[in-house]
Amino acid sequence: MNNTFLYVITVIIWGSTWIAINYQLGEVAAEVSIVYRFGLAALCMFAYCRYKKLPLTFAIKQHLQLFAFGLTLFGFNYYLLYSAQAHINSALTSIAFSTLMMVNILNARIWFKTHISSQVYYGGALGLLGIVTLFWPQIRSVHFGDSTLLGLGFCLIGVMFASTGNMISIKNQHDKIPVLPATAWGMMYGCIFMLLVALIQGQTFNFSYTFEYISSLLYLSIFGSVIAFGSYLTLLARIGAHKASYATIMFPAVAVVISSFVEGFIWDSYTFIGLSLMLAGNLVVLAKPGLLKRLSPTSSKLANCSTTK
């Protein structure tokens, strides 16, 4: 699959998972639902790897790396984000989680000495500004008390764990560990972690047999986990974590469009300006290198002056 297709699939699926997550909340504890989600996703991934005859046996050292991968990306990350939403609204959660791109830029330089072009920074800044603009009506009514700061703290720490998981995924591929087998083991380890968390908290492992709960669980497991994570983690190695993670900034854009049809969301000036900035940032980040130089009239004039001299 080409990179554009993988990117679009990731953005559309993860941008739509909020609907499915809404149907997961209520009768079954969130931690228990995450166990079900990644347990089912891991089984599907293992079955697919077995069908495609992909390697599933690894050395102990590799398993330690896969264990760290699972704990950071499918364990601590999700647990902290769910904990954050008990203290802050979805707007602040989206803004905080969208900082994953900037954290990935920093970690990519530290882990792999990746050179980041200026247009990635500009595009990322446009995207973050777009998200803040999009959610500004909700943000300006927020009271930044202790509970809000605690929620933001949980979210930002979760982002750091997610970014670490991203870096380990890239290292997995550098170490010739295929994406899908690595993801299968990572999801299983993440599932085990969340199982322990739920047991320590004394959660009841009940199940909702409603159509909404079962269908949303299947969507989150197969599409939101197997397909979306498989696509995203493949992109990490192909185009770099700094570019692939711009997908996290595009999620709210997809969510707003879907909400317009599903929930009757009414667009205002903040919506149009915010989405425009996010799309502009997306184009800048994913464009071929040197885009800003070609578009900058100042640089063109300087180039002409240098050639005449």
Rank of each mutant, 00 (worst) to 15 (best):
Thr4Lys: 04
Leu6Asp: 08
Tyr7Ile: 08
Gly15Ala: 09
Thr17Cys: 15
Ile19Asp: 04
Ile19Asn: 01
Asn22Glu: 15
Gly26Ser: 00
Glu27Leu: 07
Glu27Cys: 05
Val28Tyr: 10
Ser33Pro: 02
Val35Arg: 01
Tyr36Val: 01
Gly39Ile: 03
Thr57Asp: 13
Ile60Ala: 15
His63Gly: 04
Leu64Ala: 12
Gln65Ile: 11
Leu66Cys: 09
Phe69Pro: 02
Gly70Tyr: 01
Gly70Asp: 02
Gly70Trp: 02
Gly75Lys: 08
Phe76Trp: 08
Gln85Asn: 08
Ala86Met: 11
Asn89Lys: 05
Leu92Phe: 10
Phe97Arg: 07
Val103Met: 14
Asn104Ser: 13
Asn104Gly: 01
Ile105Cys: 05
Asn107Ile: 03
Ile110Thr: 09
Phe112Gly: 01
His115Asp: 12
Ile116Asp: 01
Gly123Met: 12
Gly124Val: 02
Leu128Tyr: 04
Gly130Glu: 03
Leu134Val: 09
Pro137Ser: 04
Pro137Arg: 01
Gln138Phe: 06
Ser141Gln: 04
Gly145Thr: 05
Ser147Arg: 14
Ser147Gly: 03
Thr148Ile: 12
Thr148Leu: 12
Phe154Tyr: 11
Leu156Ala: 05
Ile157Met: 08
Gly158Asn: 07
Phe161Gly: 05
Ser169Gln: 15
Gln173Ala: 07
His174Phe: 14
Asp175Val: 02
Asp175Lys: 00
Ile177Glu: 05
Pro178Ser: 03
Val179Met: 14
Pro181Asn: 00
Ala184Ser: 10
Ala184Pro: 09
Trp185Arg: 01
Trp185Asp: 02
Met188Ala: 03
Gly190Pro: 10
Gly190Ile: 01
Cys191Ser: 07
Phe193Tyr: 04
Leu196Pro: 03
Leu199Val: 15
Ile200Tyr: 12
Ile200Arg: 10
Gln203Ile: 06
Gln203Met: 06
Asn206Ala: 07
Phe207Leu: 13
Ile214Tyr: 03
Ser215Met: 06
Leu217Glu: 03
Tyr219Asn: 05
Phe229Ser: 06
Leu236Val: 10
Ala237Trp: 11
Ile239Phe: 00
His242Arg: 09
Tyr246Ile: 06
Tyr246Gly: 12
Ala247Pro: 00
Ile249His: 06
Met250Ala: 05
Pro252Ala: 01
Ala253Leu: 13
Val254Glu: 06
Val256Met: 10
Val256Leu: 10
Phe261Gly: 08
Val262Gly: 01
Thr271Asn: 02
Phe272Pro: 03
Ile273Gln: 00
Gly274Ile: 11
Leu277Gly: 15
Leu277Thr: 06
Met278Ile: 15
Val285Gly: 00
Val285Phe: 03
Leu291Ala: 10
Lys293Met: 07
Arg294Pro: 10
Arg294Val: 14
Leu295Tyr: 14
Thr298Leu: 09
Ser300Val: 15
Asn304Gln: 14
Cys305Leu: 14
Cys305Trp: 13
